[in-house]
Amino acid sequence: MILAENLSYSINDKSLIKDISLVLHPKKINLIIGPNGAGKSTLLKILTGQLQSNTGKVLYDDKSINSFSTNELAQKRALLSQSIELSFAFTVKEIVLMGRYPHFKHSPTKVDFEIVDYCMEMFGIQGFAERNFLSLSGGEKQRVQFARVIAQIISEDKESERLLALDEPLNALDIFYQLDFMDELRSIIKRENIVVVGVLHDLNLVAKYADQIIVLNQGELISIGSPSEVLTVDLIKKVYAVKMNVHVENERIHLLI
């Protein structure tokens, strides 16, 4: 379980996050929504340790995030962001192997290579393992990054709790891969003790895949709960200033502009 207690963050007297407390459970997908500038990315960065909150604390399994070294933290959490560009040519397999960097000192072990192969298979990229990453299409690149990030937090100790953060990772992808990714994610958290927390813009994807939705507006926590509790006409109007129709069909929510 990952706990965030009374997080606040401000920069130059501008408050980006105001007193936010959250409980995030393993094997659940927690998605943060809100308009641009609501503080979604800031919150995500505080949860991953990239930013230090001014007040409050983040606890991974009852231990403060600050008690881990950079390397220990990297074994426990990974972040997938939207598009990562490389400055030099590396092969797909080399990139996925980078996910194992926090786990070995100088040379990868046999286990590291096994995990790399396992993750490449998971995302169907073993066919171009030896290809130059820079020559891939946007969708292929993102699948490689997905495999790298999963390789980073796969642990032999299935009980240990880990965090996977998603920062709009589906933006460059077509609808097939968007759904494919989210389905893959669901099946991964069935096997691994991973907390997923992420920012997605597409509210329909959020409605379909979130176990818990966190709604932010102007740095404040507006609402938190399951899709059916949170995604209402009133809330969307209040937060996004947009009128949307919400249809509920067989307990599934559909949003229409």
């Binding site: 950079t70 390397n71 933290l73 990297a74 074994q75 990974a78 400055s87 080399e94 960097y101 100088h106």
Partner: peptide, 19 residues
Amino acid sequence: KHLNSFVMGEEEAYLMGIN
């Protein structure tokens, strides 16, 4: 190894456990 992880930028290097 550390230098390799810089290829995706310093932010990613940090996330991969590099000081």
